[in-house]
Nucleic acid binder design. Structure first.
Lengths: 211, 211
DNA sequence: AACGTAACGGACGCATGCGTCCACTTGCCG
DNA sequence: CGGCAAGTGGACGCATGCGTCCGTTACGTT
């Protein structure tokens, strides 16, 4: 179907993709098509011919990440230990998102005009919901945890992309660890039920006794 | 010292500040000086005369937030219950940051070219460290928690500004609750010591036992 | 009422990003 | 080895943001 590219064209295309991945990861989706072209040592027209839309470029540049995202989620769903599966999904997803400013932007639809990952989001969302229910059925995940909470945690992880790069992974792992500690049911006292995440004001349940 | 402004000038100035606060809160620091001027129904020159630099405008627009930030921290330090003080600081800081995209940007130096809150950051940082030590001395906060972890949590909260506005406060409170649950020391088994947040690779301590 | 000046906003020149067009280059096939 | 279509990158026109200049308006004072 697709015409076979001439070898120099193929090379340029690959360089463009490499540049895009690099810049997207470092600086998010706000990088300019021009910047990518410059980095790839290519004229703007070449870039636009191969990828007429930024969306096209983003989709292809993040193909690996999308695959990994699927792996993470399906691995989690397949883990014989529901709790470990859940924890791994949380940690690995956070790591993936924190490493890749651009991917987070894309997946969270931070720039709806540029990319639409709605389809992927919905599919993975279903699987994650399954994982959540499974972990709760096993009595390990607090029963008031809902899918929206997962999204909230991912959103939070997005903020961590701002952490200084050298210590970022460590920070993310640490953050994930704290978070997970807050999500597991207490070893002794079974936690009381509480309402869902979104929708009600400050009069809602107070999930954390402070006294 | 400062010349008394003419009444119309004073009005315009106030309108500019109102517009700036509104736009900064909603869309972060990336809003244009022009946009602010337009919203305030004022020419660009007027805006620039009153606030020659975006930094000037930001500093004055966020004066209230800076004050509240101080209140939060000093309130926390003054609370007779060290743990409650710590929890309040976490929750209120997260709420403040999530409500105000622009303030978060400013405080986290997301746009270092535009604003420099270094001074404020350092002062508040010292107080927060005190709060942390106090909560730990009381045996309520996990002993491996360090100031950098606090920053990490704030960074995470920054991501929550992306949550849909109507449910944001609820989401933030919920997030804070989970987080706090993960930070308190377990009721029964005293937690083991662990290393500090930043600096070491994946071989570091695993603060959360998963099995 | 008249005047001097603070205050105003439109307009300018510069920079940058956008997507497209086109004259030149170059790989590939006969 | 020659021709041609695929491929290329520079340049263009448009849009927008920036900070500044300057002729006009109108406040407040005398």
């Amino acid at each position: 179907m697709t015409h076979q590219l001439r070898v120099d064209a193929r090379e340029n295309r690959d360089r463009v993709l490499a540049a895009a991945r690099e810049l997207f990861a470092k600086s998010g989706l706000e990088v300019t098509m021009r910047q990518i072209a410059r980095r790839a040592d290519v004229g703007p027209a070449t870039l636009y011919r191969r990828f007429p839309t930024k969306q096209d470029l983003v989709l292809e540049a993040f193909e690996d990440e999308l695959v990994e995202c699927s792996s993470i989620v399906y691995d989690g769903a397949a883990d014989p230990d529901p709790w470990r599966g859940f924890c791994d999904v949380i940690e690995r997803t956070l790591l993936l998102n924190a490493r890749n400013q651009g991917f987070t932007d894309a997946f969270m639809s931070a720039h709806p005009d540029v990319v639409d990952f709605e389809a992927h989001r919905e599919e993975l969302g279903r699987v994650v919901s399954t994982i959540i229910r499974r972990a709760q059925a096993a009595g390990r995940l607090r029963p008031d945890f809902v899918f929206d909470d997962f999204v909230v945690i991912l959103l939070a992880g997005r903020g961590l992309t701002a952490a200084p790069a050298p210590t970022r992974d460590a920070a993310v792992r640490r953050f994930a660890a704290f978070m997970i500690d807050g999500l597991r049911v207490a070893d002794r006292e079974p936690r009381t039920q509480a309402g869902s995440a979104a929708g009600e004001g400050s009069s809602g349940p107070r999930p954390h006794p402070r006294s």
